[in-house]
């Protein structure tokens, strides 16, 4: 079959859209109240879950196991009461001495063991690093359903992974194609190569803008602002600036051959420095992105299997679509030139 890769990428993207928007999120804990605990007192606490089924318990247990943890020191909770599948009430006796001011909460039942990190702050705690004890028995979960991980901060927005991240991969692919054709142009002065280099930049910029838009939307949901000062965001902004400058440069030279040559030289020069920039910038500043500064990571050991089965097809699908757009743009541009010359 001739254009198999076009059919394949459309099929992949359909699969990605359907699966990524329909797969449910796994169980997780979203909120507790109150968030501040007084040391040396007995506190009544409420925990809210998302997509959880607190009523399903192992046969030998009346209710889920609940405990708090502070740096290796575990506090067992009493009077656990299941209100419904998403809500639990319990009480806990907080001692005067704790190893750390922040406490995590764990809920363990039939579906697995779930944690909300840094759920509580204990005021006026006496710091005692010596406190340590064994964690209570936890269940690894009997549910094998296909779902996306429920991560704090991200929640339902985790689906954007399939749309935001591949935009950047695709953009870098197109910019690399562009620089390869610029080098080819410089060595052979074939106008066709220049055409491909120029159109690859145009399509790459389209994907760059889409990446900025999806990223901005995601940042609003997770970090609270449309734009935050972050290494990756600034790197992305600079990349788009460099390639917009490329189009401006083309526009400001009149003679066709001169334009192609100067633009190709700039393209190669800019691409090499851009690669250095993208490697250097993260070393100089901290990033809010996955894997940096306490954000949930998607690194190779961490990317969940369910996410993986959608993410890899998404990357391939978007790349395929971008190459198709590039091919169409090259053809229309060539036809336009032929009409002009005729």
């Amino acid at each position: 079959m001739k254009n198999w890769w076009k059919y394949l990428s459309v099929a992949l993207l359909l699969y990605v859209i359907v699966v990524s928007l329909n797969t449910p999120l796994g169980p997780g804990l979203t909120a507790v109240s109150p968030e501040n605990l007084n040391t040396g007192e007995n506190s009544e606490i409420k925990v809210i879950g998302y997509n959880t089924h607190f009523r399903n318990n192992p046969p030998d247990m009346q209710h889920p196991g609940v405990w708090l943890e502070s740096d290796g020191f575990h506090l067992t909770c009493n009077n656990v009461e299941v209100i419904d599948d998403q809500e639990l009430h319990f009480s806990v006796e907080v001692p005067d001495e704790l190893p750390s001011k922040s406490l995590h909460v764990f809920v363990s039942y039939d579906e697995g063991t779930f944690m909300l990190p840094n759920a509580f702050r204990a005021e006026q705690s006496v710091k005692n690093d010596q406190l340590k004890n064994e964690a209570p028995e936890s269940f690894s979960g009997s549910v094998t359903a296909f779902y996306f991980p429920n991560r704090e901060i991200l929640r339902e927005s985790i689906r954007n992974l399939m749309f935001h991240v591949p935009m950047w991969f695709t953009m870098m692919l197109l910019m690399t194609i562009s620089v390869v054709y610029s080098i080819k142009y410089l060595s052979g002065l074939n106008p066709d190569h220049d055409l491909i280099a120029r159109q690859a930049v145009n399509v790459g910029l389209l994907f760059g803008i889409l990446g900025l838009l999806t990223g901005s939307l995601w940042a609003r949901f997770t970090w609270g602002q449309w734009w935050v000062s972050d290494t990756k965001l600034n790197g992305a902004a600079i990349t788009t600036l460099i390639y917009f400058a490329y189009t401006i440069l083309r526009g400001s030279i009149n003679e066709e051959q001169n334009k192609a040559r100067v633009a190709a030289v700039y393209n190669v020069f800019a691409y090499v420095i851009l690669i250095v920039l993208l490697m250097v910038l993260p070393r100089l500043t901290d990033s809010l992105h996955p894997g940096n500064g306490g954000n949930p990571a998607f690194s190779s050991y961490d990317l969940d299997n369910a996410l993986r089965t959608v993410f890899y097809p998404a990357v391939l699908g978007w790349m395929g679509i971008s190459l198709w757009i590039l091919q169409l743009r090259n053809r229309t541009e060539r036809i336009k030139q032929q009409i002009e010359n005729a």
């Binding site: 600079i238 600036l241 460099i242 400058a245 401006i248 440069l249 400001s252 030279i253 001169n258 100067v262 030289v265 700039y266 020069f269 800019a270 420095i273 851009l274 250095v276 920039l277 250097v280 910038l281 100089l284």
Partner: peptide, 27 residues
């Protein structure tokens, strides 16, 4: 050298040069 090929030397130089100078400037 690149911008000399265009009509608007200084303006083009700033547009082309500032994003590229960034890794150097920050370091």
């Amino acid at each position: 050298a690149i911008a000399a090929k265009t009509g608007n030397q200084l303006g083009i130089m700033a547009i082309l040069g500032f994003p590229l100078i960034l890794p150097l400037l920050l370091t």
